[in-house]
């Protein structure tokens, strides 16, 4: 069972949203026409995806593509105009106030793009806020807060006010606040955007380790493809409120769904992303072109899911093609040509 599940979620902003939604359903009118006829903005367009337990799902897209809007649906900070959202199988739209409150408090933690810390509370009290809402006693809260501060390497800042911290530090406090309550689901809206590369790297690693250990289900928003590839088990790419492609980093880089995604991934280094299986030629195809070359002697060998980086290393040491072997059998061949083309981003032949 998926932990988070979105099914055909639509969000139309504006007074006349229901009418606009009807028109969209009936006539299939586009964004521009909705704006013109109903003065309504389509924020999210027919979004569906699900996130499995322990998975990190990255949502990425350009500014204004509707990432923050979409993620706010998951804890129902925004009511969808149409569609259903299920948290651990329960329809969050059908929940009563009290149940919704409990779900938010116990199951979902959120990091906000703009931090949204409470300015009148110390860092420690900010971090303990979710626990306080649950009615946890002060001592336990302080303990949990200090542990969370340690995680984001802000030890000793507990008694400061948020305004006394730099933007990056505040963002880390926001992260600590979400972690402190130990929720099963984390919604993270560009949590690392305001950090310098070094800390960012550290926190990314820290967070990856953490979520592997604790198996937190995470929806992670970013507009940085490198970050998405680094963090995401799967990536959803958004454009104008629509999810245009969902897949692993490799899927997206090797088979972009459209030009928009292709543009996105154009500058990405494929060395560590693409595996041998994606570019190798089959033995028969190789034979058809090159005739029956003897492949048994001195050829370097690799596994199908070794990345291009490894293949380049092997290939430079020899003038023979690389054999891709699975369970002792040769399943494919990578020549220098194929390797170069694969690096460049061309299709396998």
């Amino acid at each position: 069972m998926s932990v988070v599940e979105l099914e055909n979620v639509w969000k139309v902003f504006g007074e006349r949203a229901p009418e606009a939604m009807k028109a969209i359903r009936a006539d299939g009118i586009g964004k521009a026409e909705v704006l013109e006829r109903f003065g309504a903005v389509v924020g999210v367009k027919d979004a569906s995806f699900s996130v499995e337990e322990g998975e990190i799902f990255c949502l990425m897209g350009l500014s204004g593509s509707g990432k923050s809007t979409l993620v706010r649906h998951i804890n129902r900070l925004i009511e969808p105009t149409a569609g259903t959202i299920r948290i651990m199988g329960e329809d969050i739209g059908a929940m009563k106030t009290e149940q919704l409150r409990a779900t938010r408090a116990d199951k979902i933690g959120m990091v906000f793009q703009n931090m949204a810390l409470l300015p009148h509370r110390s860092v420690r009290d900010n971090i303990g806020f979710a626990l306080e809402l649950r009615g946890i006693d002060g001592y336990t809260r302080a303990q949990a807060a200090d542990r969370a501060l340690e995680t984001v390497s802000l030890h000793g800042y507990g008694d400061r006010l948020p305004s006394e911290l730099s933007g990056g530090m505040q963002q880390r406090v926001g992260l600590a606040r979400a972690l402190a309550a130990d929720p099963e689901i984390l919604l993270m809206d560009e949590p690392f955007s305001a950090l310098d590369p070094l800390i960012r790297r550290n926190l990314q690693d820290e967070f990856l380790g953490l979520s592997q250990n604790l198996r937190k289900t995470t929806v992670f928003i970013t507009h940085d493809l490198d970050e998405a590839i680094r963090m995401g088990d799967r990536i959803g790419i958004m454009k104008d409120g629509e999810i245009v492609q969902i897949g692993t980093a490799e899927d997206i880089v090797t088979a972009p769904a459209d030009d928009y995604v292709a543009d996105f991934v154009a500058g990405i280094s494929r060395l560590k992303l693409v595996s041998a299986s994606k570019i190798m030629t089959s033995v028969d195809a190789f034979a058809a072109v090159n005739g029956n070359v003897d492949l048994s002697a001195g050829c370097p060998e690799a596994a199908p899911d070794d990345d291009l980086d490894t293949l380049v290393g092997l290939s430079t040491g020899s003038d023979k093609p690389v054999l891709i072997k699975s369970d002792g059998a040769v399943v494919g061949i990578v020549t220098k040509d194929t390797l170069l083309r694969g690096l460049q981003g061309g299709e396998s032949t």
Binding site: R101, R104, D106, G109, M110, F112, A116, L118, L133
Partner: peptide
């Protein structure tokens, strides 16, 4: 609004 939203997201009544 964003501060209130954050409080609500953590389950404030």
């Amino acid at each position: 609004e964003s501060t209130k939203e954050a409080a609500l997201a953590f389950g404030a009544s």
